[in-house]
Computed example of a mutant assay.
Amino acid sequence: MRDAFGAEFEVPRGYLNTPSIGIPPGAVADAVAAGVDRWRRGADTPDDFDEAVALSRQGYADLVGVPVERVAVGTAVSQLLAPVAAGLPDGAKVLVAGGEFTSTTFPFAAQAHRDVTVTEVELAALPSALPHHDVAAVSVVQSADGTRVDLDALREARERSGVPVALDVTQAAGWTPLRLDWADWVVAAGYKWLLSPRGAAWIAVHPRALERTVPVVAGWYAGEVPLQTVYDMPLRLAKGARRLDLSPVWLAHLGAAVALPYLASLDPAAVHAHCAGLADTLLTALGLPARGSAIVALDADAEKLAAAGVIASTRAGKTRLGFHLYNTVADVEQVLDALGCDRRARPRG
């Protein structure tokens, strides 16, 4: 058991796989377990979960720096970006980063039957390439190696060109400070850095982008008062971003209702300093430049690390490690031991 940032985490030693699956605080796991127990006993009705959905929605809004009325709930990044892709005009030109996670790119590529084209450029070139396209979609932090997009440059390019931007913050929200009220769409899945069960995801939609976002998965929960839109035509959707709501995965939101408000209550600068600081400590000890990202990708023997008890993942041919709230310098030391690093180069403390 580890105590970190006012919460308890039952995280195994050497767990550095948050970019794949986050480990919840005990209170989050307890909330889900209590929900399973109520389910077992038939103790809930659908509207009993409304509070949990509202809390997770507010928590996401706080984490990405937008008004809560902009936020819709869903289940996955690709599902929430599908309405964005569906709203593109025929022949639209989409800009993405090379090596981007496919949940961010495939919804747009799936529109090829309408002559929608997707162009990949180097991440650093994305802001300058924006004016030549109709929309851009990019992860704020790249899944494969933790590289960060230049948000200031992208915001400036968006303001100058008027070209809308969709941001995926799945690998960023929860460890880095974000203020993204300028972006047209901001989407994230909750089961990584947001420490929630899989099945909860959110998208923030700027008012100027709402009409160009087509609710292709509209259902009963997308109504202004969901329990009044369970039967009969005509189509009647909520006026704001909630028209994009998907019927929530109840147990996932029970966990997210605890996890996201907890994360939003923390000092974002302190969280960033902790997470990125541990990653940079590892890089420095290996003679590599610090990068200010909680995710690092190493040319390291994944099997050797696994044999030493380091829990990580392999992405794009490299071993990917991620440092979150519950990680400590002991996890850094474990990686260095596994790699046979000279102890004189080790971090202190």
Rank of each mutant, 00 (worst) to 15 (best):
residue 196 S to T: 10
residue 333 E to I: 13
residue 250 W to K: 06
residue 162 G to T: 13
residue 126 L to Q: 08
residue 48 D to Q: 00
residue 343 R to K: 14
residue 139 S to K: 02
residue 21 I to P: 00
residue 167 L to F: 07
residue 248 P to W: 03
residue 130 L to Q: 06
residue 232 D to C: 00
residue 21 I to C: 02
residue 122 E to M: 12
residue 86 A to T: 10
residue 181 D to E: 15
residue 196 S to M: 07
residue 219 G to S: 04
residue 27 A to W: 01
residue 201 A to H: 10
residue 245 D to Y: 11
residue 80 L to I: 13
residue 249 V to L: 08
residue 171 Q to F: 02
residue 219 G to N: 10
residue 299 D to P: 11
residue 92 A to D: 11
residue 63 L to D: 08
residue 264 A to M: 03
residue 132 H to A: 15
residue 111 Q to G: 14
residue 333 E to T: 12
residue 102 T to V: 12
residue 98 G to N: 12
residue 171 Q to Y: 00
residue 189 A to E: 01
residue 252 A to V: 06
residue 27 A to Q: 10
residue 114 R to M: 10
residue 89 P to N: 07
residue 240 G to C: 04
residue 204 A to D: 06
residue 302 A to V: 14
residue 135 V to G: 08
residue 128 S to F: 06
residue 320 R to S: 10
residue 183 A to S: 08
residue 47 D to V: 10
residue 326 Y to S: 12
residue 258 V to H: 01
residue 286 L to K: 09
residue 29 A to P: 09
residue 192 K to C: 02
residue 58 Q to F: 02
residue 14 G to W: 09
residue 133 H to S: 06
residue 1 M to R: 12
residue 152 D to S: 15
residue 256 A to D: 05
residue 131 P to W: 09
residue 159 E to T: 15
residue 98 G to H: 13
residue 262 Y to Q: 13
residue 89 P to I: 14
residue 109 A to G: 12
residue 336 L to W: 01
residue 334 Q to T: 00
residue 311 I to P: 00
residue 339 L to S: 02
residue 52 A to K: 06
residue 128 S to G: 14
residue 239 K to V: 13
residue 111 Q to D: 09
residue 289 P to I: 07
residue 324 H to I: 01
residue 344 R to T: 14
residue 128 S to Y: 04
residue 232 D to P: 04
residue 183 A to Q: 06
residue 315 R to I: 08
residue 111 Q to N: 14
residue 214 V to H: 11
residue 87 G to Y: 13
residue 314 T to C: 13
residue 190 G to Q: 04
residue 343 R to T: 13
residue 331 D to K: 02
residue 205 V to H: 03
residue 282 L to N: 03
residue 159 E to L: 15
residue 256 A to L: 08
residue 278 L to D: 01
residue 84 V to S: 07
residue 100 E to N: 02
residue 244 L to M: 13
residue 307 A to L: 02
residue 167 L to P: 10
residue 299 D to M: 01
residue 52 A to R: 03
residue 249 V to E: 08
residue 185 W to T: 05
residue 255 G to M: 11
residue 3 D to W: 10
residue 325 L to A: 03
residue 213 T to F: 12
residue 217 V to P: 00
residue 149 V to I: 14
residue 264 A to P: 06
residue 58 Q to P: 00
residue 132 H to W: 08
residue 201 A to Y: 02
residue 311 I to A: 08
residue 177 P to N: 07
residue 197 P to T: 02
residue 103 S to V: 11
residue 190 G to S: 14
residue 170 T to W: 05
residue 329 V to G: 04
residue 280 D to F: 08
residue 237 L to Y: 14
residue 172 A to E: 04
residue 243 R to I: 11
residue 203 I to H: 05
residue 349 G to S: 10
residue 290 A to G: 10
residue 257 A to G: 12
residue 249 V to P: 00
residue 137 A to M: 05
residue 164 P to Q: 13
residue 79 Q to C: 06
residue 312 A to Q: 13
residue 241 A to K: 09
residue 100 E to C: 03
residue 133 H to W: 03
residue 137 A to H: 08
residue 50 D to Q: 03
residue 152 D to H: 04
residue 306 A to M: 07
